[in-house]
């Protein structure tokens, strides 16, 4: 009888499980609701939005609003849609993510395997970059960009994101490489591999999880950034986030909710895709870092 007394009866265990799942489902629905509303709104014509229920499914779904947002919606005074800004963002995010990840990996490599006097101080200062609020660097950064002639350019934005992201990428890679055995580096040295050969042939091929983590983190941050974008690249060179803001705030006359929602979906899609494709590696990479770090 002691077993029955100490263990929960099957009936109540099942009930507890149902309760847990029900709670999870409810919360998942709450989190998904905005996305749902965005998607159905973007598929409805304006009349239906104004007259109907926000949660009602579209009577005749159409992609008109999506095409308009992409090609002909007015952003500020230009009525060419958000496609140009979308490509601006792509042109910004790909080099910025690639450069900051590679530099972070190199920094991590040097800070763990080619230690120099003061390496701790250097790492400490790089960590500091993670804590500086964006707003604090706006004015100095604007001046630097002006001095080197990169104001209002995508290249300038790439530079800003690389500099700002380096603290994080260095932190990720340093902690990952800290757990990487030194003897492998020594063995490679004795085998005749130099600094970069060791990096390319030994270290990078073993860095899959942390590269995924860094890329997702950097991609999300840079793609979603608004402040740097609005500060350093206004007008035609603005990234997607800034254009979305301008699109929503510059609609004259009738507010086209369906177009706004479609544009917002375009802005959210890339990060969504990155998470869906690489999300499980993200979790795995974070765990690996946590256990080994």
């Amino acid at each position: 009888m002691s077993a029955a007394a100490t263990s929960v009866s099957p009936g109540s265990a099942r009930f507890a499980r149902y309760f847990i799942y029900a709670t999870l489902v409810i919360f998942a629905l709450i989190y998904l609701l905005p996305l749902f509303v965005m998607i159905i709104t973007s598929l409805k014509p304006l009349d239906e939005i104004r007259s109907g229920n926000m949660l009602a499914l579209p009577q005749a779904p159409s992609l008109d609003a999506w095409f308009k947002a992409w090609g002909t919606a007015c952003v500020g005074v230009n009525c060419t849609g958000i496609s140009g800004y979308f490509w601006n963002s792509i042109k910004m995010v790909i080099p910025a993510v690639a450069i900051s990840t590679i530099l972070g990996a190199l920094n991590g490599y040097v800070l763990t395997k080619w230690r120099f006097p003061g390496h701790k101080l250097v790492f400490g200062m790089m960590l500091f970059a993670c804590f500086i609020p964006f707003q604090a660097v706006l004015i100095p950064m604007a001046r630097v960009l002006g001095e080197i002639g990169l104001s209002n350019t995508t290249a300038g934005l790439v530079l800003v994101h690389v500099v700002y992201g380096l603290g994080f990428t260095t932190l990720f890679f340093r902690n990952y490489y800290e757990a990487f055995p030194d003897e492998l580096i020594k063995a490679a040295q004795m085998d005749g591999a130099g600094f970069f050969k060791i990096f390319w042939r030994i270290l990078l091929p073993s860095s899959g999880p942390i590269i995924v983590v860094t890329v997702i983190y950097q991609f999300t941050n840079i793609w979603n950034d608004f402040l740097f974008g609005v500060s350093f690249a206004s007008g035609g060179g603005a990234p997607m986030t800034v254009a979305l803001n301008n699109l929503v705030s510059s609609s004259t006359g009738v507010k086209e909710y369906n177009v706004d929602m479609a544009a917002a979906m375009f802005a959210a899609l890339p990060t969504l895709i990155v998470y869906v494709v690489a999300g499980r590696y993200f979790v795995r990479g974070l765990m690996a870092g946590a256990v080994k770090g």
């Binding site: 492998l184 020594k186 063995a187 490679a188 040295q189 004795m190 005749g192 591999a193 042939r201 073993s206």
Partner: peptide, 27 residues
């Protein structure tokens, strides 16, 4: 180290995890 014409076997073996045995030996 690479110019001394010496080879070392480490306590942890230090095999390159991303390469095959063949790749390790040939490296």
């Amino acid at each position: 180290p690479s110019k001394r014409d010496i080879a070392m076997v480490f306590q942890s073996y230090a095999l390159y995890p991303n390469m095959t045995v063949e790749g390790n030996i040939a490296f």
